[in-house]
């Protein structure tokens, strides 16, 4: 399977799914009842057609130059990307729960150690403490914008 085939199938599915959602939107009670759905329906249809077109192009070998097949095994970068994404999700999850200072410190030190290895722990600690405290203070003190506080400590 080539990347273009995947893109084609995905666009097709997104188009269909989106159109279905557009069709099942609640009807407007004031004015034309289907007014909120018209534009989305056009988009859904357009997306579906583009997906089909891309598949046809691909099958008809129109895109020879761009043809790339995809392997499903993760490369080393793939693993790093997955790890960073996972850390990002955790960070977003704890952003308000742990407060800005703590969550940012934890997140940055994990990402930094991913990039640097543990040996540089001193600079890792330095950068993550510096960044989280610096940003927090800049927002709170200079800009007067309160970032999420740590629970209980109120910092």
């Amino acid at each position: 399977m080539t990347i273009n085939t995947i893109t084609g199938i995905l666009s097709f599915l997104i188009g269909i799914g989106y159109s279905y959602m557009a069709w099942t939107l609640p009807r407007a009670t004031v004015g034309n009842p289907i007014a909120p759905s018209v534009f989305p329906l056009m988009l859904g249809l357009g997306m579906t057609i583009m997906g089909i077109l891309l598949l046809i192009q691909e099958k008809a070998w129109l895109l020879k130059k761009e043809r790339k097949s995809v392997s499903l095994t993760l490369t080393q970068y793939g693993k790093s990307i997955a790890t960073v994404t996972f850390l990002c999700i955790l960070y977003a999850f704890f952003f308000e729960r742990l407060g800005y200072l703590l969550s940012t410190f934890l997140f940055l030190s994990s990402v930094l150690s991913l990039f640097n290895g543990k040996e540089r722990w001193k600079s890792i600690l330095g950068v993550s403490i510096g960044f989280s405290v610096g940003v927090y203070a800049l927002f709170g003190e200079v800009l007067n914008i309160q970032l999420p506080r740590m629970p209980f400590l109120g910092l």
Partner: peptide, 19 residues
């Protein structure tokens, strides 16, 4: 160096989005 710059960019992207 990239190994410091990119984590910081990541941090900035998050605070920027939140703000």
């Amino acid at each position: 160096p990239a190994r410091y710059l990119f984590p910081i960019v990541l941090g900035l992207a998050f605070i920027g989005t939140y703000a």
